[in-house]
Nucleic acid binder design. Structure first.
Lengths: 188, 188
DNA sequence: GCGACTGATGTCAGTCAGTGTCATCAACGT
DNA sequence: ACGTTGATGACACTGACTGACATCAGTCGC
């Protein structure tokens, strides 16, 4: 057994989400989060670069899921199909987590600087997606454009899913959003 | 004559860009910006909400140009054409400002929190664009999707323009980026 | 003219996010 | 035993940002 309770990072993340939801992001101090997690303020900053980052710990996993799904698409698949496979896999992470995702998103939506950080994470995902497409041989600027548009579409689809019933299939909602965007460009 | 030198906001904006370019965003304190502009630190925060915002003062004008150009497109124009008109008008703001835009973009690119703020501004532009499309009768989610994809495309086009020669036509580069994205979806 | 009012600024004290540095001490390997 | 490692605590410090109140040129009504 260690000298301290294990999983300080996890405890901090849970404490932060709770407090942000209870009293709001700005009304919560890092000292309070640390106290609820049973560590000092200094330890908070050893686990998370700043007060916002504590809500986005799972991002790295998401980049990997996205990139590997794009890479795993059949070699003959078109860029659009590979992109779709990636976004569907990404959406899969959230399946069965409708309620948790909704609470987290509500916290983020309630604060400008958290929304700002979320945009940064989405932009990083677009970069990861563009890289994965280039690895498949898609040239620029098509790769970058497709990635940016794809992530934007994911965002829209994800929000639709959150706003809808719990039974809805995230992956299906994302597929439909991509089809819809295809329609805008196909019909001119 | 007033009690103080006029245009404190403009002086602060110029001082900030200079200092951020000279020594970097993080190495510049608000007190230094205020001093160069001949005001106190408190006055800086009366003109700009935070240390980042001082670089983005022109954003409101951009939302208006974008929205009114979309609204001014012929009633019979397709959503894609109206969207294109809006983005081309937006790009027009930067014409003849290649060098200034490049310096500003270099400052932003050099710092994570400035990039973060820029993403927020782009997201606000996507919202303004989606609103303008809806006012033309474009339904959701197509309006939101087209707006998100359109702004993402603008971003890509704008960066291509900045990276290219000064003589290049911003509006033309943006048109080409939109065509390219159309190709991705048309060819599937 | 003159007093009330306005608006931009200065002054000052305070909170809190984030960082650098050194000390502590269980666990682990040798 | 003994040195090393790694996560944490303790503590001082900088700088972004806020709230409250004071100041005073210009303006307006009379």
């Amino acid at each position: 057994m260690g000298r301290w309770e294990p999983d300080a990072g996890g405890r901090l993340a849970r404490a932060a989400l709770e407090l942000y939801a209870e009293r709001g992001y700005e009304q919560t101090t890092v000292a309070e989060i640390a106290q609820r997690a049973g560590v000092t303020e200094r330890t908070f900053f050893r686990h998370y670069a700043d007060k916002r980052e504590v809500l986005f710990g799972a991002s790295d996993e998401m980049y990997e899921v996205l990139a590997s799904a794009v890479g795993a698409a059949p070699p003959a698949a078109t860029p659009l199909r590979a992109l779709t496979a990636g976004l569907v896999a990404l959406a899969g992470i959230f399946a069965e987590q409708h309620e948790h995702a909704r609470q987290r998103q509500a916290v983020i939506a309630a604060n400008a600087s958290l929304r700002e950080r979320e945009l940064t994470k989405l932009a990083a995902m677009a970069t990861a997606l563009a890289d994965a497409l280039r690895r498949r041989g898609v040239a620029d600027p098509a790769a970058t454009l497709a990635a940016e548009a794809g992530i934007a579409t994911f965002k829209v689809g994800f929000e639709l899913w959150l706003a809808g019933p719990e039974e809805a299939d995230v992956t299906q909602v994302v597929r439909e959003a991509l089809d819809e965007l295809g329609g805008v460009f196909a019909r001119g």
